[in-house]
Nucleic acid binder design. Structure first.
Lengths: 297, 297
DNA sequence: GTCACCTCTGAAAGATATTTTCGGCTCGGC
DNA sequence: GCCGAGCCGAAAATATCTTTCAGAGGTGAC
């Protein structure tokens, strides 16, 4: 299952981070060079870049392909564009990681900044076509299952809650065994969504595989577009991967990224089914009102 | 045809005008095409541009030379850069709400933008002193309860998961009755956190009240600093409230905001308890590793 | 520890794109 | 009408990019 990134203009560094794990050593060297000095690399031919990174032309081309371009030529053009953009638009860039001795005010600033960055990267890297396909499938689904464990499990529940609110039928089984038994019930026209950052969480892949084989439309939300989970996904939605540090585990940024994707799905579905979604939203709001005490003091 | 002056690449149109008189007819055609649609021309090969302008490759190359580039290849790179610059120069300026007939690409952009906004607002409005007090209490707590329902319930679970990962004892009872029975067990030195956007969710206030009366340190994470829940809170952490629209319920932005606050709490606590937190984090990471299948390629 | 297998890697062949060459062509002047 | 100057494009020559293929290196099984 191959998915192309939506906008080639999106942050290249983010793309490199996302795909780095699925790269071989020499490809990583090339990717690093490219992400580190776009302007410099744009001036080089395949051969030049191959020599600079101590690899071969073939590897350079392979890297370009992995980054979503048809070949090196196109990567080079994109690089030139990127360089020009950087030139004009000076990024402010808070570079340092969160340290043990940072003040709380620093922590707040850095966390907020990094999450903003994550959001921007995700938005830039999201494949609108795949998103559209997923939305269409969801809007028409008889029922929807959402699989996710750990931090991703919360995202799965979030999506489920939202879909229920607009009158769709959705489940987010937390127990992997139940997930599989649920998946068996799916058939063509139903939708199954797997959420996993690594893309290789067996307990999440398994129910998706079952759903896939039962003919349901399957969607994977993952940070690794080349990972096992995508084998069984009709549509792949890529979340961004930001560099992690000891104090800020990857789970944190992947959650932010996943939530944005899930929100987009939700809003998309709500648009498509507006006629029924709007009253359903209003109704669920009403139903909760009496649970909140009156005043604000 | 709009051209931006001043930027290094932007002078292309000017260059064309200056040199036009010394150009032959077919070269002018090429120069015009290039100045008129840099982005489009950047996508073409020599042959393509020659066909488009009804001329030959040789003429295209000659034109490139005249414009000051060593050959067409370099002109093309410059063109790509120019196009990217024009692209980015266009201010996005997202003002409008998400509408029913927005394209998915618009939805993605707007959602990302609004969430970024929410993050910035939250970071700016966060009371560092209260945050510090809450962190101190958490770091020293014998045990911690986190109360939240609905969307806030997921945030509560998120915090709980994280605290557990660094070796603290935390619970996020989902059932309001259990929450109260849990709260009864708390005493001085323990911490109770209530998460509610409205600040007036009875089922969340009640356990916090109990905890407060048992002498535990209580924290409220709410969007309404004047709401009932704050009566029983030693420390109040305010989340931002952005304007909501029909397609983007308040729950969405409050969740983003709440998660940032919760992340700050977590990182703060991890800093304070670094000695024990670091190995605990590493250990939980290890434990999960075998749940992920090997390959990614 | 050894073997078989699989993946990664770069050299070289093959395909494209760019540059150069060169001869035909047009157009103005005589 | 004839001549020359310079413009123009077809095609050859070159550079660049892409693909193929076989060896290197690592990994897991036995």
């Amino acid at each position: 299952m191959k998915e192309s990134f939506g906008s080639p203009g999106g942050s290249l560094a983010a793309k490199v981070r996302t795909l780095a794990p699925s790269m071989t050593r020499s490809m990583q060297r090339v990717a690093e060079a490219v992400a580190g000095d776009p302007a410099g690399c744009a001036a080089l031919t395949v051969t030049g870049l191959a020599e600079l990174t101590g690899t071969s032309e073939a590897t350079v081309v392979r890297t370009a392909r992995l980054l979503g371009y048809p070949g090196y030529r196109d990567l080079r053009l994109a690089l030139a564009g990127l360089a020009a953009q950087q030139q004009s638009g000076r990024a402010p860039a808070i570079t340092t990681d969160i340290a043990v001795d940072d003040s709380l005010a620093d922590v707040v600033t850095k966390l907020a900044y990094e999450e903003q960055q994550t959001l921007a990267d995700t938005a830039a890297g999201l494949d609108t076509a795949a998103l559209g396909a997923a939305v269409t499938a969801l809007a028409a689904a008889r029922r929807t299952d959402v699989y996710g464990l750990g931090a991703s499990g919360l995202v799965a529940q979030d999506l489920t809650q939202k879909l229920l609110r607009i009158g769709l039928i959705a489940h987010a089984p937390g127990d992997p065994h139940l997930a599989v038994t649920n998946a068996v019930q799916l058939r063509a026209g139903d939708v199954a969504i797997a959420i996993t950052h690594s893309g290789s969480t067996g307990d999440v892949i398994e129910p998706l595989r079952v759903a896939f084989e039962r003919g349901a439309t399957t969607v994977a939300i993952t940070g690794r577009p080349q990972s096992p989970v995508t084998q069984y996904a009709d549509h792949v939605l890529t979340t961004s991967t930001s560099r992690e540090s000891e104090l800020r585990p990857a789970a944190m940024s992947s959650r932010t990224s996943q939530l944005l994707v899930v929100d987009c799905l939700f809003v998309g579905v709500a648009q498509r089914t507006y006629e029924s979604a709007a009253p359903a939203l209003a109704a669920s709001y009403e139903a909760l009102a009496h649970r909140h005490r009156a005043g604000t003091r």
